[in-house]
């Protein structure tokens, strides 16, 4: 069992124009930087990207937006990106905004073989348009479909050859549920280790969900909002 591929270029092999891909991360935290760079380099276009956010103008998914490689974004929050807003308002980019919890649950459901579920989130709003409404315990819920993708790309802290993954801090976010929902899941990690080095008790994503893994060449890990307190207090 060896899922290791040489690098980001090899990892994204098979991702082609018009495909739907999932990308983990929240803001710029826990995003698969190396694979995004490789996708920019490979020039694949017409992508549908499922990702909580769309990066900033010059980092994260913003890099793919700049090159107009994305046709449609499925996200919950896309502020902080002027180019995104411009493409959306001009109609170049199709955007499906969905509640954050529904996004996470839809990915998890997709990976878990649950085709759809009812949730209260979005009832009575434009998110509910065209969706079945059913009452449970007297409260209205809307039917949400599961999400899957041809490729899911996640970023973890450590991973082994079998694809077992451990995330660090809040860089975990959407990565575990998206890892479940890819037909092919690519994991890029900061540190690739041998099987046995990760304590099975602390594995977050079992390797069964992962098909390809590699150690990223470098991680910029850009901080979007640097907030600190002074030591004087």
């Amino acid at each position: 069992m060896n899922k290791v591929v040489a690098n980001a270029q090899a990892a994204i092999s098979g991702i082609s124009n018009g495909m739907t891909i999932m990308l983990g991360g929240f803001g710029l935290c826990g995003i698969p930087e190396n694979c995004i760079a490789a996708l920019v380099e490979a020039g694949v276009s017409d992508l549908t990207c499922i990702s909580n956010n769309a990066g900033v103008d010059d980092f994260g998914l913003g890099l793919l937006l700049q090159k107009k490689q994305i046709r449609k974004m499925i996200s919950s929050y896309v502020g902080e990106n002027d180019e995104f807003e411009r493409q959306m308002l001009s109609g170049e980019l199709e955007v499906d905004l969905i509640p954050q919890g529904s996004l996470a649950a839809r990915c998890q459901a997709g990976g878990a073989g649950v085709p759809a579920f009812f949730t209260p989130a979005g009832y009575g709003t434009e998110v509910a348009i065209g969706k079945e409404v059913r009452y449970f315990n007297g409260k209205p819920h809307i039917l949400e479909d599961a999400l899957t993708a041809e490729f899911a790309i996640v970023k973890a802290w450590k991973g082994d050859r079998f694809g077992n993954l451990i995330y660090k801090g809040t860089a975990r976010n959407f990565n575990p549920v998206m890892a479940m929902a890819g037909k092919v899941t690519i994991a890029e990690v900061e540190e690739l280790v041998e099987p046995g080095e990760l304590d099975p008790n602390f594995v977050h994503t079992p390797g069964v969900f992962v098909q390809r893994i590699f150690q990223g060449e470098k991680y910029e890990k850009r901080i979007e909002q640097r907030t600190v307190r002074s030591r004087g207090n």
């Binding site: 929240f26 803001g27 710029l28 935290c29 826990g30 902080e80 802290w157 660090k168 801090g169 809040t170 860089a171 890990k221 850009r222 901080i223 979007e224 909002q225 640097r226 907030t227 600190v228 307190r229 002074s230 030591r231």
Partner: peptide, 16 residues
């Protein structure tokens, strides 16, 4: 504290 920011530790407002 300044100098102890961790890119892997943010809140939903993307603040460290």
């Amino acid at each position: 504290y300044e100098g102890e920011e961790d890119a892997d530790m943010i809140n939903a407002g993307k603040q460290t």
